[in-house]
Simulated assay, not measured.
Amino acid sequence: MKRTIKSLFLFAAVATTLVSCIKERDMNIDPAKGVANMLGFTYSGDDVAGSSSVYSRFTSDLGSLKANQTVSFPVNVSYMGQNEAPADITLNLAVDTEVLTQFNSENGTNYVVPDASIFKLPATAVIKKGTRTTQVKVEVTNNASFDFNKNYALPLKITSASSGAISSNLGKAVYSFSARNQYDGLYVMEATGPMVDVTSAALTGYYPLNMYLITYSGNSVALFDADGVYSKNYFHPIVSGGTSVSAYGSFSPIFTFDASGKVTSVSNYYGQESGGNKRSGMLDPTGVNKITFNADGSVKQIEVSYIMTQSVASPFAPRTYFKEKFTYKGQR
């Protein structure tokens, strides 16, 4: 019923659609006036919850966040039904963890509520007289508590209102959000030295290519085949026999940085010693491993030297050497 109410509300036939959906609940009906106006969370972006979910989920991509940067996402609340608000209506908002527990169970998700220091939720929202909707902003800060490895969501609830009835299902909603670290983006990957596979001279580098560096943690990114040259996934494309595009199975590098812009380590997205060949990533300290920043602090270029190792024959035996430069093109 949640999806029917929401989708039809977005079209013109407000009164008719709400009659057909809300009339199932006797408590929502005023016998003298027909369908009562209801208060609830509405269309803060697309509702991406599963069809069996009681509560809506709205999601926001906060973009790339620098350390201690604060951004916001919108939360819309509405007076839904035949009429506009007859007077100013003050709604009290709060986080309800039971909503998220139920949502995760119904949708097979693992969202968690962020630490209280990460977000700032307005305690109230006011729908002005003669209107139907108001919007408040939830602020999110990339501080020391922000964990890029967690799936964050705020399960919100209208706890009370100065007037009007709160919808039993639309009066609660889940707002998920994700952020990207400052290194995340679309890059041109080029070689600063030949790719060398010590076991096969037929395997060579494939450059230049558009590649994504995707947030893995607050200070690391994983390599992703942006154009699907081999497969649009976490792979490093190579060339076999001079013409055939290939990739190393169970391997894609994760680059980790420190605050100064130094590349401090390289590991494998699929896990160290992954796959039948037990492949891992390793930094090559003899090469260049640094970030070049623009004047505004944004990433201009990343240079990295690393090794794909294989432990199938001997522990962390070097298999392939890479020397690469990633030049930032824009957001992915």
Results as ranks from 00 to 15, higher is better:
T4M: 12
F11S: 12
A12G: 15
A12D: 15
T16Y: 09
L18P: 05
K23E: 12
G34S: 14
N37Y: 04
M38S: 10
L39C: 11
T42Y: 15
S44Q: 01
Y55W: 05
T59F: 12
T59R: 04
L62V: 07
Q69F: 00
P74R: 05
V75A: 06
S78P: 12
I89E: 04
L91P: 01
V95C: 04
N104I: 00
Y111A: 08
Y111R: 09
V112N: 10
L121A: 05
T124H: 08
A125P: 09
K128F: 08
K129H: 12
T134G: 02
V138H: 03
V138K: 01
E139H: 15
T141N: 14
F146H: 02
D147Y: 05
L154V: 13
K157G: 08
K172F: 01
K172W: 04
S178A: 03
A179D: 12
R180G: 13
D184M: 04
D184P: 07
M195S: 08
Y207I: 06
N210E: 15
M211T: 13
T215D: 12
T215P: 10
T215G: 12
S220H: 10
V221P: 07
A222K: 06
G228I: 09
V229T: 15
S231P: 02
Y234L: 07
Y234T: 12
G242V: 03
S244F: 06
S246C: 02
I254L: 00
F257Y: 07
T264D: 04
S267Q: 08
Y269Q: 10
G275S: 09
G276K: 06
R279V: 03
L283I: 14
D284M: 08
N289D: 00
F293R: 09
K300M: 00
I302V: 06
Y306N: 12
T309P: 13
Q310Y: 02
S311T: 06
A317L: 14
F326Y: 15
Q331H: 07
